[in-house]
Write a protein that binds this DNA or RNA. Sequence first.
DNA 1: GGGATCACTTGACAAACTATAGCACTTTAC
DNA 2: GTAAAGTGCTATAGTTTGTCAAGTGATCCC
Lengths: 119, 119
Amino acid sequence: MDAERDYCPVHEAIQVLQEKWTMHIVRALLDGPLGFNELGRAVGGCNPATLKVRLDHLEDLGLLRRTVHSQMPPRTSYELAPAGVDLQRVIDAIDAWAREHLDIVAIAEVDEESSVAVG
Amino acid sequence: MDAERDYCPVHEAIQVLQEKWTMHIVRALLDGPLGFNELGRAVGGCNPATLKVRLDHLEDLGLLRRTVHSQMPPRTSYELAPAGVDLQRVIDAIDAWAREHLDIVAIAEVDEESSVAVG
DNA sequence: GGGATCACTTGACAAACTATAGCACTTTAC
DNA sequence: GTAAAGTGCTATAGTTTGTCAAGTGATCCC
């Protein structure tokens, strides 16, 4: 149930990052603080329920900071904490990898390379 | 439904990597090829159904190669393709980040920092 | 005053993931 | 020679996770 038997920070990190939308959220927030709905749109349409859960989790982990500017009308901003900002390097690595390898996947779809399939 | 309207390889990459177990699978495979069950155990108990789906997806994307050594007794090995091996850098980035930031979370649990809770 | 917007919350629902059993067969142990 | 354990999967039922639609209370714009 828990990874504590042989605690591995990488495993833990992967657990966090693999939650749906988490990396998208971080990526969006790397460009600067955003409001709740704004963020939802930025990540490409995450629903508010999930978004809130993720945001809470991320805040719990100390990766982001939630600032309430006014209760009514509600106005909140979400901003990466230093630990969250450091995820930039992870996102960058993904970015570099993606440009190098996923683009060719997109190209391969247009190309005709499917003849050497495993059959 | 699809990200094709403004195709972004990073977005695509995140979609792949955020699927449950994907990064664990890659990480396990970075140490060398593994058989199906072996891999399942290596990633820490992924069930065969999900594992197969991930593996197929990863193979589709050209990130790994599946080699059938013998049909009976069944013996297959999964091995990262070059594109998959390159994910090493992503895993490394996560690794570095995790050691820097998630360890302190683990420490914080032992520490008594829970008095400033949100409640 | 009506409609849009904000940051969420709720509750019903669907999609994703999990556990477990089983298949067809070989290898190993005795 | 037989039972148990192993291989790579697949099927199915069940749980968890994520989604959709609607709604809340207040303020802004017209």
